[in-house]
Design a protein around this nucleic acid. Structure first.
Lengths: 370, 370
DNA sequence: GACTAGTCCTACAACGTTGTAGAAGAGACT
DNA sequence: AGTCTCTTCTACAACGTTGTAGGACTAGTC
C-alpha cells in the first residue's frame, strides 16, 4: 500500500510543477510564496479524480467512507480552500449580495446594515457594502456599476433619487428597494410604516397632554420620502384629535442630523413660537432638539415632550432617554434579504413586485414622561 | 450592411442556445430571463475576435479607432458588463478586500468601516464586511473562512483574541491587523496611540483642576488591549503629576457600552467614593457616565469633569458635549488599506511586519469645561 | 526589393471549478 | 446466467475571461 505505484489516473493535466525535483533536498524553509492549492493537488494526493474531490466538498452522497476520508485528509494536509472565483464562475452565482446605502456613519444605516448582515448569514451569503454618500449621481452609479457583477443582487436604499427616477430601477439583476423615496417601481420594496408610525407618535404626544406639537425636519414640497410621509401621519393625528395645524410649528431641516435638529429648535425658540412638544422626524433630529432644549434650560418632559423616529440605540441612552417609534429594522432587513434571495434563486418565477411595510411600535421613554 | 451575412468568425464556440427556435414566433413579451451578455456576443456583433473586445475593455493601445468604436457601440447596444468571477479567476485577483470587525452597530466600528470604505475606493476595490460579534471563536473562523477566497486580503479587528493567539495570524494571504489585542505578530499592524492618548486625556483633566479622577471600563488582569493600554496612560499621567493612584477609582466594565458605563458610575456613586472627574476608556462608557451623573443631579463639568476616548460623532452632540481623544480614524483606515493593497499588489516584496500608531488629538468640549 | 519594426488583430490555452454522461462493479431479482 | 438497479467513481466539457504567441498587414530603412 505505498503511494508510488498507485494508478494515478487524472494526473496528466495537473500542474507539472507538482513533481518534486529529483532527490534534490530543497530547503524546506523556503515557503512556497503564493501558489494556492487546487483540487488537482488534493485529487492527486488522495488518488481520486478531481471530480470526486468536488463531490466530497459538496456533500454528494454516494461516496465510499474510505474514499471520503482519504479526500478529507488530503484537504486537511494541504490546507486546501475552494477558489470562490472559479466556483462562482462555474455556478453562475457569487454568493454575495450588495447593500447600497448613504453612509455607515449614520446610526440608522449602520444598524440596518448590521441586521442585513445577520439576515444574509442565515442564507449563507456575504454582503458587499457600497456608499452613495447621499449623492444623487452616485445612487445612479451604484445601479449600473461594474461591481454589480460581483454580486447576485442588490439591496438599494436611496436617499436622493425621487419618484421621477423610477425608470432607473428597471435593471437586469435582482433588486430590492428600501426606504421611501420611490414607490410603485418594478421591484420588491420593503419599507417602514412611516405614516402610521408618525401618526402613532403624534397621538402619543397628544395622549400625554400636548397640544402645540412642533415638527422638526420637514422637507418643503416633498411628496414621497420619509419627511413627507411622516409629516402626513402627524397631520392625520392632529386631525383625528381635532387640533388645528399651525404652520409655524412645522420646521424645515434638510439633513437629518443632530446639528440640524438642534438648529431648527434654536430658531423656533428664537422666533418665540410656543410649543409643548417636539416630534423629531428621526431620532437624530429629536436628539438635537433635546440637546438644544437642555441648553436653553427647557425642562423635558416637564415643559416640552419630545419623541423621535427610528429607535436608534442612542435613543435609549440620551438624557433624558428619548421616546421614539421603533420601525422594525430587523423585520425590514430579514424581509428584504428573503425577497432578494428568493429572486436570486428562482429567477424564472416571474412574480410581480411586492410591497411590505414592517410593523412599528411606540417606545415610550423619559422624554415623553414615559 | 445587415448583420445576417457577416462572417462571424469566432462564433462556433458561442452558446448554441442563442440560435432562435426555427421560425416559431416566440412571444416577444417573455423577456429573456437571465442570460447575461458575454464577450462572445459583443465580438460577434462588432465582427471582431473576442480578444479584441477584451483589449478594448482593458485599454490595450494598439486598436484602430474604427474597430474600437465598433466594439464600444456593440457593448453599448447589448448592455455588456464584464463578468467579475471570470475576470477574477483569470487574473487571480478579486478586487475585494475583507473587513472583519465586531459589530457595525458599535459607533466606533461603523465610523471606522466608513473610513475604510472611502480609503478602499481610492484604490478601486470593494469592501466585504464580516461580523465577528466579538466572539472569540468567530474571530478565528474569519481568519480561515471560505470567504477568504472571495477577497484578496483582510483587515482584521479582533476584540476577543489575545496575545497568546498570535500564532493564528500566520496566514497565507495578506492580512493587516487593527486594534490592540495582539502585538508583535507577523503582520502589519495599525493602531492608535492608546497610552499617549490616555495620558493626554488624564493630563487634560488634571490641568482643569481634577485630582480624584475615576476610570471607567478597566479590565482586570489585562496586559495588552485598549483597556490595559489606556489605563497605563492614565497611571503615567497621575504619576507625572504626582497624584497617588486610588484603586477605588478604577472601575471595571467588561463591555464598553453606555449601559455598562452608566452602571459602573452608579456603583461608584452608591459606594460613596469621592471623585471630581471621570475618564471613560471609550466614548460610550463616558456617555453612559454622563447619563448617570445627570440622573443623580451631579453637575458636569461643575462638580465632575468627564472625558472619553474615540471621538465618535455622538460625543459632539451629547448633553453636555463630551470631551474626548480623537484617535485619527481616517489615518488608521488609510494606512491600513494602503498597507494591505501594497501587500496584495507586490506579494513578492517580503518586507517585515510594519507597525504604525496614528496621531491623536485632545478634543476639549463642555464636559471638561470646554 | 528585401529587411526590420511597428501596428492591429486572431487563435489557443489556460484560470479552478462543477454539471452531464456514462463506465465499472456489486447485489438483487428473474 | 441474464437483466436491472444502485453505488461509486471517472472523463470531458463547459463557465467567461485574459496572457501568450504569432499572423498579416503597413511603413520605414538601406
Amino acid at each position: 500500500m505505498t503511494d508510488a505505484d498507485a494508478p494515478r489516473s487524472d494526473v496528466h493535466d495537473g500542474p507539472e510543477a507538482d513533481e518534486a525535483p529529483p532527490a534534490s533536498a530543497h530547503a524546506p524553509l523556503t515557503r512556497r510564496p503564493r501558489a494556492a492549492v487546487t483540487m488537482h493537488e488534493v485529487a492527486a494526493r488522495a488518488r481520486v479524480s478531481i471530480k470526486t474531490v468536488s463531490n466530497v466538498i459538496n456533500g454528494y452522497p454516494h461516496i465510499r467512507p474510505a474514499t471520503k476520508e482519504r479526500v478529507e485528509k488530503a484537504i486537511q494536509d494541504l490546507g486546501y480552500k475552494v477558489n470562490a472565483s472559479a466556483r462562482n464562475l462555474r455556478r453562475g452565482r457569487a454568493g454575495v449580495i450588495g447593500l447600497a446605502l448613504p453612509e455607515l456613519a449614520l446610526p440608522y444605516f449602520a444598524e440596518l446594515a448590521d441586521e442585513v448582515m445577520k439576515a444574509a448569514e442565515r442564507h449563507g451569503v456575504s454582503v458587499l457594502i457600497e456608499h452613495t454618500g447621499a449623492q444623487r449621481s452616485r445612487e445612479f452609479d451604484v445601479l449600473r456599476s461594474d461591481r454589480r457583477s460581483l454580486t447576485d443582487g442588490l439591496l438599494f436604499s436611496p436617499l436622493e433619487m425621487a419618484q421621477d427616477d423610477v425608470g432607473a430601477l428597471t435593471v437586469d439583476y435582482p433588486l430590492v428597494l428600501l426606504g421611501e423615496r420611490i414607490f410603485g417601481g418594478p421591484v420588491d420594496h420593503v419599507t417602514m410604516a412611516n405614516v402610521e408610525g408618525a401618526r402613532a407618535a403624534t397621538a402619543h404626544l397628544i395622549e400625554r397632554g400636548a397640544r402645540r406639537i412642533a415638527v422638526v425636519g420637514s422637507h418643503e414640497g416633498e411628496v414621497v420620502g420619509s419627511a413627507a410621509l411622516r409629516l402626513n401621519g402627524y397631520l392625520q393625528a392632529l386631525n383625528e384629535a381635532g387640533i388645528p395645524m399651525d404652520p409655524e410649528l412645522i420646521r424645515e431641516a434638510g439633513l437629518w442630523h443632530r446639528s440640524t435638529g438642534a438648529e431648527a429648535t434654536r430658531r423656533m425658540l428664537d422666533d418665540g413660537v410656543a410649543f409643548d412638544a417636539v416630534f423629531g422626524l428621526n431620532d437624530a433630529l429629536a436628539l438635537g432638539a433635546l440637546h438644544e432644549l437642555h441648553q436653553r434650560h427647557v425642562d423635558v418632559p416637564g415643559q416640552v415632550k419630545v419623541i423621535g423616529f427610528d429607535d436608534i440605540e442612542d435613543a435609549a441612552y440620551s438624557t433624558p432617554t428619548l421616546s421614539t417609534i421603533s420601525p422594525g429594522k430587523q423585520q425590514i432587513a430579514r424581509t428584504a434579504v428573503d425577497f432578494l434571495m428568493e429572486r436570486i434563486s428562482t429567477p424564472e418565477l416571474l412574480l410581480g413586485p411586492r410591497y411590505v411595510e414592517a410593523e412599528f411600535s411606540v417606545v415610550a421613554r423619559e422624554s415623553t414622561g414615559g
